[in-house]
Amino acid sequence: MSTVPAFVPLPPEAARWLRDGEEPGLLTAYAAGPALREAHGLGASDDEEAGFVALGYAGLAALLDDAGPRLVLAVDLDAGQVRASGDDFGTTEVRGLRWGQVTALFGDEPDAAADLAEVRRLVAGRTLAEVADDEDVVGLVDRWDLLWYAPEELDSVLA
């Protein structure tokens, strides 16, 4: 069965519930689909770069909705779980996500807190489309990397 790699911005409590077996319902993810690739001039062989772009959008989206620690799950989805929107951000609707599909976690560097609080202030009430090209927002976000963690490290990432 074919899988679709994607990135799911998720509030920390929802990640804990998912890990503990709760059904998360409909989620928004970001995947390196055809529309994202076309919007960014990426071809079929540019998988790594397209993945980084999708991760970046997921990381930015995580700052729109939640004031807690920023968390993005890297997941491998079954094709039947995915409904792509076809927008330039790779936005994808996901149903039935299971913790076993999580391949990695991404969280913020501890020293990023002040800049990310400023980003949250700048993006309040705005959509991803409205902030994706905002130089002030992008400049602050790009100062910090999302750090990679194994799924087993969820509690450490959120501590």
Score class of each variant (00 low, 15 high):
107 G>Q: 07
19 R>M: 06
70 R>T: 14
66 D>K: 03
124 A>N: 10
96 G>K: 06
23 E>H: 10
96 G>Q: 05
5 P>D: 09
130 E>D: 12
67 A>N: 06
1 M>Q: 06
30 Y>F: 15
102 V>M: 02
74 A>P: 00
91 T>I: 04
63 L>Y: 06
157 V>R: 03
87 D>H: 07
111 D>P: 00
78 D>K: 10
18 L>N: 05
142 D>A: 15
7 F>C: 03
115 D>F: 08
139 G>Y: 01
3 T>R: 13
87 D>A: 07
69 P>T: 11
12 P>R: 04
151 P>T: 06
21 G>F: 09
22 E>S: 05
79 A>T: 13
27 L>Q: 04
44 A>P: 13
99 W>I: 02
122 L>H: 09
58 A>T: 07
35 A>V: 05
97 L>K: 07
70 R>L: 14
144 W>L: 01
80 G>T: 05
49 E>F: 09
66 D>R: 06
93 E>M: 08
30 Y>P: 07
47 D>S: 13
65 D>Y: 14
32 A>F: 02
142 D>L: 12
119 V>G: 00
87 D>V: 10
8 V>L: 09
20 D>M: 02
51 G>Y: 10
136 D>Q: 11
103 T>Q: 12
47 D>Y: 08
11 P>N: 12
125 G>S: 09
109 E>T: 13
18 L>I: 03
107 G>R: 08
59 G>F: 07
121 R>A: 12
62 A>S: 15
54 A>C: 09
70 R>V: 11
142 D>K: 08
28 T>C: 01
43 G>P: 06
16 R>V: 13
96 G>W: 11
87 D>S: 11
10 L>G: 00
137 V>F: 04
6 A>D: 04
116 L>F: 14
88 D>W: 05
37 R>I: 09
78 D>H: 12
34 P>S: 11
41 G>Y: 11
127 T>R: 07
44 A>R: 15
75 V>F: 07
40 H>D: 09
157 V>N: 00
146 L>F: 08
19 R>P: 02
74 A>D: 08
75 V>Q: 02
152 E>D: 15
81 Q>M: 10
61 A>W: 09
147 L>V: 14
124 A>E: 15
77 L>E: 05
158 L>V: 13
155 D>V: 01
151 P>I: 07
93 E>R: 13
64 L>V: 06
49 E>K: 12
11 P>V: 05
120 R>N: 00
130 E>M: 05
18 L>R: 07
108 D>T: 15
88 D>N: 01
89 F>K: 10
44 A>N: 05
143 R>T: 00
91 T>Y: 00
137 V>Y: 04
133 D>E: 15
73 L>E: 00
23 E>Y: 09
146 L>M: 11
41 G>R: 13
130 E>A: 14
87 D>C: 03
137 V>W: 03
124 A>D: 15
53 V>F: 10
112 A>E: 07
36 L>H: 06
35 A>E: 11
86 G>D: 01
105 L>P: 04
78 D>V: 03
74 A>I: 03
157 V>K: 06
150 A>C: 07
82 V>A: 15
123 V>T: 15
62 A>F: 00
46 D>K: 04
100 G>A: 14
72 V>F: 02
123 V>P: 03
86 G>K: 12
133 D>M: 00
25 G>C: 07
